[in-house]
Design a protein around this nucleic acid. Structure first.
Length: 226
DNA sequence: CAGAGGATATGCT
DNA sequence: GCATATCCTCTGG
């Protein structure tokens, strides 16, 4: 028996977090995802792994910062309204991708903002450099801690694009979630989401592991308040 | 360290 | 047309 939220895993015999893990309210899922390991198998068979260290909750309805605000569905955000565990991958600024996981709640989803790279760092570096966008070609190779320290960086590093949109993280063949080796040793920090303006800009809907080098934006004030 | 600029898909006023 | 859940490089204090 695998236990709550767990199902028989990938060919390596590891456990994979199953559908019932995702079926909880958005904020609860955003917190529960911290410390879990996102695993990716590339077409050539290489496996990449990273520990989730930063997430954001995007609620439906009243949350004016959410793509699903007001309960509006579009071709882009359809995955937000699908069953918990469904991936929502969208393109931002016409250039980059962001990876979200649908939670319980109408139109609610969790944005994955950063990972701590664990395995396949060289492949990640290669993917980051080969997919660089924007008008600034010459690049210094990223340090290990900056391979996945941002929502679009982690998508580049794991070669995640729109083909993953509307896939189910509980059953996708090349992308899955494994339970973290242990409960996170770092304390949970709650702070405002990044890049948001408007009424909901200050709501504490971003969650990260305190002191982790791979967190994209450290909020000293929020940490002080703990 | 802060700010500017650029690349540019998608949805909305 | 305009704003946006971004990232990278260069510039000036």
């Amino acid at each position: 028996m695998a236990g709550p939220g767990l199902e028989a895993g990938d060919p390596r015999g590891r456990l994979r977090l199953g559908g019932d893990f995702f079926g909880r309210p958005c904020v609860g899922l955003a917190k529960a995802l911290l410390g879990q390991v996102l695993a990716r198998r590339l077409p050539d068979g290489r496996e990449l792994r990273g520990r989730i260290v930063e997430t954001e909750a995007y609620l439906g309805g009243e949350d004016t910062a959410s793509h699903s605000r007001g309960g509006r569905r579009t071709a882009r955000n359809a995955a937000m309204f699908m069953k918990p565990g469904t991936l929502y991958v969208y393109q931002i600024y016409g250039l980059y991708f962001c990876l979200n996981i649908s939670s319980q709640g109408e139109g609610a989803a969790v944005l994955l903002r950063s990972l701590e790279p664990l395995q396949g760092l060289e492949a990640m570096r290669q993917l980051r450099l080969s997919q660089r966008k924007g008008g600034h070609p010459p690049a210094k190779p990223p340090k290990d801690w900056q391979l996945c320290n941002g929502p679009s960086k982690l998508c580049q590093a794991l070669a995640i694009n729109r083909t993953f949109d509307q896939e189910d993280l509980a059953s996708a063949p090349d992308l899955w979630l494994e339970p973290g080796p242990e409960a996170p040793a770092e304390a949970l920090v709650c702070s405002p989401r990044i890049g948001i303006s408007g009424d909901w800009a200050h709501k504490p809907l971003r969650f990260y592991l305190r002191g982790n080098k791979c967190v994209s934006v450290v909020d000293k004030a929020a940490e002080q308040a703990t």
